[in-house]
Amino acid sequence: MISKSEYESIAQRALMYYEKIGIAITNEEKNRIEIADFGLNDIYSTGLQLITYVNTDRVCAKEMILLPYQTCPEHKHPTRKEIPGKEETFRCRFGTVYLYVEGEKIERPHCNPPCGSEEYYTVWKEIILTPGEQYTIYPDTLHWFQAGRLGAVISEFSTRSTDEADVFTDNRIIR
């Protein structure tokens, strides 16, 4: 778990990204930036900063920030009791996003998993997103993503988000 001072520092960095690219954030949203360290206590390697705008029974919209080379760990949004898992579209707004999904492994991926966690990264079909590009991830699809050297801002448009139901490849993760 991150300390309060570390939370505040990272939240300020996230706000700088929003400001830099002209995404208006209300004071209420600024006060509820989520900093996810996934219970691994290595936020700069494995983590994610986000604001959820809306999450209803049908739709969800978020703005996500990845710091330089920060990774959101491998996971999927499973179907549960006849309720389809989350379908999400990522649209890159700033930086470069290296997204990895199920499919044919490329020979030389641009990214490496965080040091010490390599065994928990199993999908290697690489999709590279730069500003204005987007990709849709369907339910029950393993995926993970990492920012390039500048960090990244990603808009997520999806069906209902139930983060507590996500299944991570790494059993050490707490969400």
Score class of each variant (00 low, 15 high):
18 Y>P: 00
157 F>V: 03
56 T>Y: 02
140 D>M: 07
135 Y>I: 03
42 D>V: 14
91 R>N: 09
4 K>R: 14
148 G>Q: 08
117 S>E: 14
154 I>G: 00
138 Y>R: 07
128 I>F: 12
138 Y>C: 07
150 L>S: 13
142 L>M: 13
99 L>K: 02
161 S>F: 09
108 R>M: 12
43 I>L: 09
21 I>R: 13
166 D>T: 01
74 E>T: 03
43 I>Q: 02
25 I>Q: 00
60 C>S: 14
170 D>K: 03
157 F>T: 07
16 M>L: 10
151 G>K: 01
144 W>G: 06
105 K>N: 12
1 M>D: 03
40 L>E: 05
119 E>D: 14
140 D>E: 08
54 V>N: 12
108 R>Y: 13
100 Y>I: 01
53 Y>D: 12
79 T>Q: 04
8 E>K: 13
81 K>L: 11
26 T>W: 11
153 V>A: 04
106 I>N: 05
35 I>L: 10
170 D>G: 07
71 T>K: 02
103 G>Y: 03
174 I>S: 09
45 S>H: 13
152 A>E: 05
31 N>E: 15
148 G>Y: 10
140 D>G: 06
150 L>W: 07
6 E>K: 12
59 V>F: 11
102 E>P: 05
62 K>L: 05
130 T>F: 03
112 N>M: 12
22 G>M: 07
150 L>I: 04
1 M>T: 08
63 E>Q: 15
75 H>N: 11
154 I>H: 01
40 L>M: 13
154 I>R: 01
35 I>V: 13
93 R>L: 11
19 E>R: 15
62 K>S: 00
106 I>K: 06
29 E>G: 02
166 D>F: 05
159 T>F: 01
114 P>C: 12
156 E>D: 04
50 L>T: 00
29 E>N: 05
111 C>I: 06
135 Y>E: 09
24 A>F: 10
85 G>E: 02
142 L>W: 15
135 Y>F: 11
61 A>W: 07
47 G>M: 01
175 R>N: 15
174 I>A: 09
132 G>D: 04
159 T>S: 15
121 Y>R: 02
151 G>W: 02
74 E>C: 07
131 P>R: 08
84 P>C: 08
162 T>N: 14
14 A>Q: 00
91 R>M: 13
20 K>Q: 14
104 E>I: 15
44 Y>A: 14
80 R>V: 13
13 R>L: 08
46 T>P: 04
78 P>E: 08
39 G>A: 12
108 R>A: 14
140 D>A: 05
108 R>L: 09
66 L>W: 08
110 H>A: 13
45 S>T: 12
118 E>S: 14
34 E>F: 05
160 R>S: 11
62 K>V: 02
73 P>E: 06
120 Y>W: 13
114 P>K: 03
47 G>A: 00
76 K>I: 10
22 G>F: 06
123 V>R: 03
102 E>K: 14
5 S>F: 11
70 Q>S: 04
134 Q>G: 12
18 Y>S: 04
115 C>T: 13
164 E>W: 10
111 C>W: 02
149 R>Q: 15
